[in-house]
């Protein structure tokens, strides 16, 4: 039986998910990555070449400067550190007083740039100097699941990189967002199942990483795998796509849906196009003419009055305890 349309499900639940704010500008600066993970919705890999230009970075900075209500800059990729203007982007956004988050895969510090060979070992010190909030994927606190999802050797490199961040002071205090040196980890399931409860997993991660490796971090965010792009292909290969989507639909949680991140952020593609979220970006669900198609058409009022584009993958954000770039969303 086909799954009900996500928008129908919202209507049945009496929900009308309109934008609430644009608190965060989430900018995807590259699809190049030193890894090629099984679940990656970006299909990022060492072979990708898409990069945000300096002009588009400058336009993002101009938008931040013009709109103090956008308090956070969330930089993602690919491995965003592999964009040639990454350091400049962070330095400039911090100079504007913005809270800056980087979706950092940990291993890029060790691997460096896969295309140029440039070393990235300076990153932990650079992040600390600019008080960047580091948000790092670590799919499990053990080697097996981590390497299965992200490639051989990733767990060991991630441990080494986390140690470098800890040495800079990251993850050492339970500081409030925006102050101190925050290292948050991201868990996403290694296969076709939903994440465990965020609080339970966080306790397990903290206990295991500290006792076995002496590593510390602040919070764990659980994220549900989106049934799109590379993960969708994986599900289809396993003959598990329909079952997974049914699982997401059956776990639909109105409280989680209310907290979806697209209500409070705007996603910018490497080419400057605007989207409701990074997932819609990868599905090419560009904002309408009325809302503003690119960062050059950025108009906060029009964005706050737009209709968010929903599709079947949105069940991923509304399942169980919910899922967002900041973890679970259900109250």
């Amino acid at each position: 039986m086909p799954s009900p349309l996500f928008e129908e499900k919202l209507a049945q639940s009496g929900l009308d998910l309109a934008p609430l704010s644009v608190e965060t500008l989430q900018v995807n600066v590259t699809r190049l990555c030193n890894q090629a993970c099984h679940h990656c919705h970006v299909d990022a890999s060492p072979k990708r070449t898409e990069q945000m230009s300096r002009a588009t970075v400058d336009r993002c900075l101009e938008i931040l400067e013009r709109h103090p209500a956008i308090t956070k800059l969330d930089i993602t990729g690919g491995a965003p550190e592999l964009n040639p203007h990454f350091d400049y982007f962070i330095e400039s956004a911090r100079a504007l007083g913005r809270h800056v988050m980087v979706r950092h895969n940990l291993t890029v510090t060790i691997d460096g740039n896969p295309q140029t060979g440039e070393s990235k070992r300076y990153l932990p010190e650079f992040f600390a100097r600019h008080q960047v909030e580091v948000i790092s994927s670590l799919p499990y606190y053990q080697e097996f699941f981590t390497d299965k999802q992200r490639g051989n050797g990733v767990f060991k490199k991630s441990v080494e990189s986390m140690r470098m961040l800890n040495e800079q002071g990251y993850g050492k205090s339970n500081c409030k967002e925006g102050s101190g040196l925050t290292l948050n980890l991201v868990y996403n399931p290694v296969g076709a199942f939903l994440p465990a409860l965020q609080g339970d997993l966080e306790r397990q991660y903290k206990r295991e990483l500290e006792s076995k490796f002496g590593l510390v971090f602040n919070s764990l965010f659980t994220i549900t795998n989106m049934p799109i792009n590379r993960f969708k292909k994986d599900l289809e290969r396993l003959g598990a796509y329909d079952e997974y989507l049914t699982r997401l639909v059956n776990a639909f949680n109105p409280s989680a849906a209310e907290g979806v991140m697209c209500r409070s952020l705007i996603s910018v593609g490497y080419d400057g196009r605007l989207y409701d979220c990074d997932f819609n970006q990868m599905l090419d669900l560009n904002l309408s003419e009325e809302a503003g198609k690119t960062i050059y058409d950025f108009d906060l009022d029009r964005l706050l009055n737009r209709r968010i584009i929903f599709d079947q993958h949105c069940y991923g954000c509304a399942a169980g305890a919910g899922s967002s770039c900041g973890g679970a969303t259900a109250k």
Binding site: Q142, F145, P189, G191, F193, P195, A196, L197, D200, L201
Partner: peptide, 12 residues
């Protein structure tokens, strides 16, 4: 197997 995974257990 699913329930174990969804409560955070691992193959070990």
């Amino acid at each position: 197997t699913t329930q174990c995974l969804e409560t955070g257990a691992n193959p070990d």
